[in-house]
Structure formats: C-alpha cells, structure tokens
Amino acid sequence: MAVEQSQDAAPTTARLAADGVFKVFGAKPEKALEMAAAGVPRDEILRSTGNTVAVRDVSFEVTPGETFVVMGLSGSGKSTLVRCIARLTDVTRGTVTINDRDLTAMNELELREVRRKQMSMVFQHFGLFPHRRVIDNVAYGLEIQGVPREQRHAKALEVLDVVGLGGWGDHYPQQLSGGMQQRVGLGRALAVEPEILFFDEPFSALDPLIRREMQDELLRLQADMHRTIMFITHDFDEAIKLGDRIAIMKDGEFDQIGTALELLANPATDYVREFTEDVSRIKVLTAWHVMKPPAGEAIGATVGVNQPIDEILVVLLAAEDAVGVEDLSGALVGVVDREAVISVLDTES
C-alpha cells in the first residue's frame, strides 16, 4: 500500500505467484480447457461442452509487502480466482506458488501447515462464528494451532486493540454492527500473523461511509504490518485507493495489470477505459501515486501520503517549491512537484 511502495528498488522474489491458472467448472473439463486455452469465447464453450470457464490463463506475481488488487464486475471470475489461489477450490490447470513452493501440488497436511502459518482470508460476508464470543473468533486460528487458551486470548486482546475493538471481546458477533463485525474478521485474520492476506470483497457488504473508514483502517494497518495482500473488489475507486498494482479482470481473464497511474494514463482495452473514464483523477489519486523519491530539493510545505491530488493542488499553489510527502509516522517519503500534478490533470481531459 501507499507507504510501502518502493519506487526505485525492483523486488527480488515473488511471495505469491500464479502461472497460467485455469478454472473450469463442470464434469470432464478437458475439452473446455483446450478450447479455453485456444481462446474460444466463454459462451461458446458453455454451449458446446456444458462447462463454465471461470478463470482463463491468469498469471501474476505479488512481491513481499505489496497490495495486489483484482478488480472486476460480478461474474468476472475474481472471487473464483482468489479461491483458487488460496486453494479453497483446486485449479484445473496452472500453478500457484507461495514463497516458491507449489501450493497446487501440496498434500492436505502440507496445505494445512501453510494455511496455519502463512495465510489468512477476510470474507465478504465476514464468515464469523456466531456461537463464539468476539475474542474466541479472533483467537480461532491460534486455537486450531493448539496455542494454549491463556496465550491465544492475550494475543486476541492485543489484536482487538489494533483493529479498534478493545473492550468488545466478550460480546457475540451479532451484537456488533456490520463494520465492527468485519473488524472482527480482520482481527481474526491478523491474529495468526500471516505473511499473506486474502481479501475477498471484504467491504462491499458495508455502507459507503463505513466502507471508507475500513479502507483507511486497512491503509493504516498495512503501513505498520507490511503484509503481502491480494485484494478482490468490484469498486474501481477502492482498487485505486488500496492497490499498489491493479489487475482488471473480465470474463475470467486479466485485461490489464498496472499501477493506478498506468491504468489511468494508458488503458489497454476499451473495457478498462470504461472504468477509468468516469474516475475523477484529482479525487482518487493521492500523493503516493505521483510522488518521486526525495532528492534534496527545496520543499515548501508537506502533505500526507494519502491526501488526494485536489487537496495537494491548493498546497502546491500556495507554496513556491515542490511539496514534501510524509507517511503516517511523519517521515519524509517523497516529493510532489507541479509537473507531476499537471501530468495528472492532463490525462483528466
């Protein structure tokens, strides 16, 4: 996320990678798979074989600490994709690797071990356990690992504080509002300290105000915890706000992968353009989208790393020089000058 993006050093290894992933639903997928690989449209494959191609030849890499957002509308296969990557369903073809280990080839025992130690998921409808108190929901992953009660409760209390639910541990999930329930879901995922977090449209069941609040919360948390995140959404604004890189998915395929700026500047297909067209760049793009690494230039004023361009514009106009960009802890992480902002305004028209 914002603060974590290193703009100069190229990542060395991928934490999470998918290579040529296909997912075909229905019995006897072989023929449908061949047709899908040959590029036959989905409808035609469905008509002639009865199989649904949900994911078609998807490949990507996510580097440590990166937030990778997959954005698509309903039916685009994005949820199926994240389920394949987490191996909640098996891929029909292709491989998924986590820290260079092939997840698709693991047996049940190895898979359990990886899930216990390395990954967690936050679900769209929270997937909480209504018969367990909030604290026992959060401690669930540790309980599964056999961590003693006292220890896991101590950890759960700590995590509840982090997600802003201090003091709610003894309540039951249904006593909490939707936003708070998803905080429980988030806390439950964080309690096991996973390297990789999967988010399957975690905020789409919440109302807009709460959704924005949760997005900010996630940005704030990620600034400290540096997890590797795969985030599924149908909301393009959310994708721009959270994603270091964004993949636009349509009919089971990736249309384009790129940073928010790249997508806005050069939409690869008409489909991607449809999304970027309506976006108000100066509202959704923030300082970290356009900043350069600081190189000792004179700085007139500072802005927050997550401040949108339209706010920075005012500061820039008042300041003589470029403005500095500070992260949440107040450290200087970048510089925004007038050219950068003008180039954004340029693509707006």
Binding site: A86, R112, E113, R115, R116, M119, M121, R188
Partner: peptide, 8 residues
Amino acid sequence: EASEMFGA
C-alpha cells in the same frame, strides 16, 4: 471456509 483457511 474460514475454518479451513486457518488450517483446521
């Protein structure tokens, strides 16, 4: 699925 994802 949440339970499975925790390696249960």
